[in-house]
Amino acid sequence: MSSLITRRHAIALGSGAIGALAAPHILSAAITTNLEIWGPPVGPSAVLAHAVKIGALTNVAPDAEVRVKVWRNPDELRAGLTSKNIALSVVPVQAAVNLYNKGFPIQLVNIMTKGLLYVISTNPEINSLQALKGQSLVVPFKGDTPDIILDRLLENEGILQSTDVKNVGTPIEAVQMLVSGRIEAALLPEPAISAAIMAGKQKGLSITRVIDIQEEWGKLNGSDPIIPQAGLAVTGSFVETHGDIIPALHDGLVQAADATLADPMAAAQAAAPAMKLPVPVIADSIKHSHLGAWKASELRGPVETMLTAMGEVDIKKIAGKLPDDGFYYF
């Protein structure tokens, strides 16, 4: 396997409490120690790291050191949130909804990617959903967002039963199978895709993004090509103690997202230590991750479209219902 791809690069994703979140945001105590912002080992964390590097968050907590930390899998994230070791983090939207609907005090501040899913292959002729019919396709994280989205798309095309879809535990396993020629295609998120492409080059293979899943999702729903997979979420305890900094934090991330898109290499250099990925991989992935920072309520429509699809597969995925207004910080 390429030196660019190693195991450590694998990617993972009560009513009283909810009512408290809906209360007006109160001026809070200044942060004088450290401000930790967590994120996944994917594109939005590059925005977080670049925000620190360019000083976009300086005014958010002027007396504190802002640190970016990366969780490695959804289990680590959930454990950190429930134990209060993680108070501020970019999270999969579905994971935040599940916690919120179960009574855990958490709110979605913004969306930081409009989708980073693609089908990749060594065969350029597999360039449409119909072309997947009869092919072997690997998808990581069974039952999570990529798997559910793919099932809905293949079902709509009438080829779900005639496509050999296999599930694996992590993107790294899918990349290994594709590079070794054991499968025809893989549905993956960035930056695993950029890593796979670079690994393929080292083996003399041309791996390309053959299907843009965001585009296909937009066609299915008659909407813009948006899959709002992840965004910044904040716990109730953080809102109570430091809620007044959240608007400034969001504004800083808007600035950092623009700077990240303008100079992916600089953002990648800032993010590499935390994400534990090679700088060229992160830089390439930024170009294909539809990064930004949009207030959560601005993308509520696409969020609910995605969640509805998940609920139709298994209502437990969203803890029984769409989230109410209190889920959206603003």
Rank of each mutant, 00 (worst) to 15 (best):
I31C: 07
E298V: 10
E298G: 05
Q214R: 12
R152Q: 15
L81R: 07
G39F: 00
I31L: 11
N101T: 05
S297G: 06
A186I: 10
L13F: 04
E190N: 07
A131M: 08
A283V: 14
A29R: 14
L117A: 03
I207W: 13
L88D: 11
G200V: 07
A268T: 02
F327W: 06
G222S: 08
D164L: 06
L4M: 12
E304C: 08
P105M: 11
S136V: 11
D212T: 05
A20R: 15
P146A: 00
Q107K: 10
A46K: 06
G19Q: 11
I106A: 02
I246L: 08
A22Q: 13
A79D: 09
N127A: 13
M310R: 07
P140M: 02
D63I: 05
V60K: 06
K142D: 07
H50I: 03
M198K: 13
I106Y: 01
I18E: 04
D314M: 08
V138M: 02
Q161I: 14
A10I: 00
E298Y: 06
R78A: 03
L21R: 00
G115E: 09
D284T: 07
K276H: 07
P92L: 01
K69N: 08
L249T: 08
T305A: 08
S297K: 11
D244T: 06
G181N: 12
E36P: 01
L108R: 01
L48G: 09
E184Q: 15
L154H: 05
P302F: 03
V109N: 07
M112R: 06
A20I: 09
V254T: 11
L291S: 13
M306Q: 11
P228Q: 05
H50K: 10
H250V: 00
A49S: 13
A283W: 13
G181S: 04
G243L: 07
V91S: 00
D244W: 00
S162R: 08
N127Q: 12
K114Y: 01
G158N: 12
E312D: 13
H288C: 05
G320F: 01
I315N: 14
A174T: 04
G204F: 09
A268W: 04
F141E: 15
G143L: 12
A17R: 07
I86G: 00
S128T: 14
Q94N: 12
W217I: 06
P278L: 14
V313Q: 13
A64K: 08
S28F: 03
P140V: 06
I207H: 03
G311L: 10
I213C: 05
N59R: 13
A195F: 10
Q161C: 14
F141D: 11
P41T: 00
V279Q: 15
H288S: 05
H25R: 14
A10G: 04
M306F: 08
G39Q: 01
S15R: 05
